[in-house]
């Protein structure tokens, strides 16, 4: 990492209402460019704004000044799509638990705060621009086995006709709440993607529909995960703390079991 260089840009400098914040934002023109932390002063921030709305205000000010707005991922803005990311004040999705960045509100900060805003940092998630990273590695892991092959000839079984024990259905559902945001990778000191892969493996391994392909699935997904340059899990547990869906590392343990079983059975 290069030394931090700050460009002082004062935006929306109405100091009468709301909070005055100092934002230190990672700016990087493109994947190849050298990025840097850039400082912005933002005034009149309402505590009722979501974090992304605060970013919108910042960008509005930048556009009005003829400057390049800060690029960041977002879509649903209600915590279900997994698009928003941002490493805020040293934590993935900010200081709160069980929420995405879009569900984080400015009332979690106070007037005069300095807020560091950085992209996910991982060899598997290269920066595209500013705070936007390329998370297609997760797509490739999913494509390697994160699915159930279904015959669509018209004779498909109604999923509800297959009995599933309630306990298994609950665990599978908990795993399936993963929105693939990548906070696990961003938070893990090792840059490991095993909470994501563990959740995706578990979601299918626990259900009867997923059983026939379980061994190929875990082998192929782990192989792809390793090929993407993610680190190795050392059971630190930071991922489950910062996961916006609070997915348990028990899913990583299940993946470990599945992989072992797959390889022992050949």
């Amino acid at each position: 990492m290069t030394t931090l260089k700050y460009n002082h840009v004062v935006i929306n400098n109405n100091m009468e209402n709301g909070m005055n914040l100092t934002l230190k934002v990672w700016r990087q023109a493109n994947a190849e460019a050298q990025g840097q932390m850039t400082e912005y002063k933002l005034g009149n921030v309402s505590p009722d704004m979501s974090f992304l709305e605060m970013m919108d205000v910042l960008n509005d000010g930048l556009i009005r000044k003829g400057e390049d707005p800060v690029t960041f991922d977002h879509d649903c803005r209600e915590g279900i799509c997994g698009m928003c990311s941002m490493f805020i004040n040293g934590e993935a999705h900010g200081p709160n638990r069980g929420v995405t960045t879009c569900q984080l509100h400015m009332r979690s900060f106070k007037d005069g705060d300095t807020i560091y805003i950085e992209p996910w940092r991982s060899a598997g998630f290269p920066v595209i621009k500013d705070l936007m990273v390329d998370r297609s590695a997760f797509d490739r892991i999913q494509q390697a086995g994160g699915f159930v092959s279904v015959n669509t000839s018209g004779r498909t079984l109604d999923a509800n006709a297959i009995p599933v024990p309630k306990a298994d259905a609950d665990k599978a559902f908990d795993a399936a709440t993963c929105i693939g945001c990548g906070a696990c990778v961003a938070t893990c000191p090792n840059g490991s993607a095993m909470l994501f892969v563990g959740a995706k493996v578990s979601q299918f391994a626990l259900l009867p529909q997923g059983h026939p392909e379980r061994h190929d699935r875990v082998e192929n997904m782990v192989k792809q995960m390793d090929a993407e340059g993610f680190g190795n899990c050392s059971n630190i547990g930071a991922c489950e703390v910062k996961c916006p869906k609070s997915i348990s590392i028990e899913n990583i343990a299940r993946m470990n079991r599945e992989y072992m079983a797959a390889n022992l059975k050949g």
């Binding site: 940092r121 840059g191 340059g229």
Partner: peptide
Amino acid sequence: NRAARPVAYAYEK
């Protein structure tokens, strides 16, 4: 694991 995060965060908690 060190190689898996080539660029460090400026601020971490």
